[in-house]
Nucleic acid binder design. Structure first.
Length: 494
RNA sequence: GUCUCCAUCGUCUAGUGGUUAGGACACCGGGUUUUCAUCCCGGCAACGGGGGUUCAAUUCCCCCUGGAGAUGCCA
């Protein structure tokens, strides 16, 4: 039997790191086993499901290059793949369970349930959850309530005796006493929609899913799902619960740890291959040395046995490192194309980019490529080329352990030299500037730094002469002259 | 509270009944460099504790501790 796995998110928010990791593992597993990867949308929570979330799901998978073999948009023979379009199905199966005595209608109001929970909370009762109030309603009571049109939910009759186990590929056998399983969880809500438990079991069975790979937070529900399969008389798929992705403090990764939405990473300028690579390495490894994998390699080498059991902490720093590496591997043309949107957004170029602008931009790739950790870093790095620089504090010109006066003199001298030799070979310019530093008894940097600041507006920039050339000698000299004036003005004030 | 799961450097991890417990990120030094970055070299740093099993446990078993997750008409 060929492998069929699925990623089944609920569209109640933006796709986040944890979800995507689950999607990736399912996808890799399908590809590595020549199986099918199915996308299913579990939008049974009518309150929280949104179309925006569904769109974000598609955008995210497309961006990462994860194509699904069956699912919304592409279709497939087990559709529909959106649960809200399958409602009738779940109600039918729920009815079947009722008819078989495996489930029952519960007419308890949310108010009663709330009160019950509050009471249990207050008295620190050992009993948690539903009290099975409606489990043994008489035929008359049920008929009466139905006749009254009382809203109801359908609950599973969980056995109170015995225990239920299932095999997890990673964890081994997981067993839970039936009395510890949720006391009669809701299968069908009063709005007629199924809960996750019901929908997930029915769909996985109907869609021929062979392996369920989902986060470990689902382990406690495992026995419940097995009970459902048994109630239907179906054979459950193989389970493989994936370790969770945590934040720095060891808690489930969430917004307070930083960005968790894939969209945020994308906007900040992370490359899909870097994100894919890093996220996959949290919880999976190949061997003791290899840490770079392309999508194709994951699809070939991925295996369940190499998945780690323990949860992993998401390290933003390491992701950044991966991203820098992937950026540096880009060809100049590719990188420029990736960077262009950021330039537009910063207003450095208009929405229509001229031939000249783009070839100029291409020419500065070597200056910035190895300085980028994320694509958006291009903005501060190239600002001086597109906007006038504004040195706020005159101290900015002054290198460490050097006086303002010396700095002013150094920049003035440098200005004379650069003006006289503008456009000449770098070696000549360097030689002369080094000479100046010697004359003034300064470190070489004592002369270069003020020039850098004058030209780029910052102590941190691409190499000086490359920056000047990119900016153009005329503008550069003007900025240096402005810098000289600023420094001299300050010296006079003292 | 109850239940379930987990446990190697700060982090991601490799690994074995006998190893100097390996790599990567981060961090700290040093080198290259006119700054930053890149790059190169070096350093720091781990088997949670206690019992067993065994000639020998980081590795196998048990307990403890610690952590996490679940305990919803959310998934």
């Amino acid at each position: 039997m060929s492998v069929r796995v699925r990623y089944a998110p609920s569209p109640t928010g933006l796709q986040h790191i944890g979800g995507v990791r689950t999607a990736l593992f399912n996808y890799f597993f399908a590809r590595a086993n020549k199986g099918s990867f199915i996308l299913r949308i579990e939008d049974t929570d009518r309150e929280r499901s949104t179309n925006e979330s569904i769109q974000d799901l598609y955008d995210t998978l497309n961006w990462l290059g994860i194509e699904w073999d069956e699912g919304p948009v592409v279709g497939g023979e087990y559709g529909p793949y959106i649960q809200s379009e399958r409602s009738r199905l779940y109600a039918q199966y729920a009815d079947q369970l009722i008819a078989d005595g495996k489930a029952y209608r519960c007419f308890c109001t949310p108010e009663r349930l709330d009160a019950l929970r509050e009471e249990q909370e207050k008295t620190k009762s050992k009993e948690k959850g539903y009290d099975r109030h409606c489990r043994n309603l008489s035929e008359e009571e049920i008929a009466h309530n139905l006749a009254q049109n009382m809203p109801y939910v359908v609950r599973l009759k969980v056995p109170t005796e015995g225990k239920t186990s299932f095999e997890d590929v990673l964890m081994g056998t997981i067993t839970r006493k039936n009395k510890d399983v949720n006391p009669d969880p809701v299968l069908l809500k009063s709005d007629g929609f199924p809960t996750y438990h019901l929908a997930n079991v029915i769909d996985d069975h109907l869609m021929g899913i062979t392996h369920i790979m989902r986060a470990q937070e689902w382990i406690p529900s495992g026995p419940l799902h097995i009970l459902l399969y048994e109630a239907f008389g179906w054979t459950p798929p193989l389970y493989c619960h994936l370790p969770m992705v945590m934040g720095k403090d060891g808690q489930k990764l969430s917004k307070r740890h930083g960005s968790t939405a894939v969209r945020d990473f994308r906007e900040k300028g992370y490359l899909p291959e870097a994100l894919m690579n890093y996220v996959s390495m949290v919880g999976w490894s190949y061997d003791d040395k290899r840490e770079f994998f392309s999508k194709e390699e994951f699809c070939e080498l991925f295996s369940l046995e190499k998945i780690n059991k323990a949860p992993g902490i998401f390290d933003y720093k390491k992701l950044e490192w991966y991203n820098g590496i992937y950026i540096r591997e880009k060809r100049d043309e590719e990188l420029a194309a990736l960077l262009l949107p950021y330039l537009k957004e910063a207003g450095f170029v208009g929405s229509q980019v001229s031939e000249q602008e783009s070839s100029f931009f291409l020419s500065i790739m070597p200056l910035i490529k190895e300085r980028l950790k994320v694509l958006s870093d291009v903005i501060p790095l190239t600002r001086f080329l597109y906007q006038e620089v504004a040195v706020e504090d005159v101290q900015e010109f002054v290198p460490k352990k050097q006086s303002l006066g010396d700095t002013a003199v150094a920049l003035a001298r440098a200005y004379e030299i650069l003006k006289a030799h503008a456009g000449e070979a770098v070696e000549i310019l360097e030689e002369q500037l080094v000479e100046v530093s010697k004359e003034l008894g300064l470190k070489v940097n004592g002369v270069f730094m003020p020039i850098r600041v004058a030209v780029t507006g910052s102590q941190v920039s691409p190499p000086l002469f490359d920056s000047i050339r990119a900016l153009g000698w005329e503008k550069a000299l003007q900025r240096i002259e402005d810098g000289v004036k600023m420094l001299e003005g300050e010296v006079d004030d003292e």
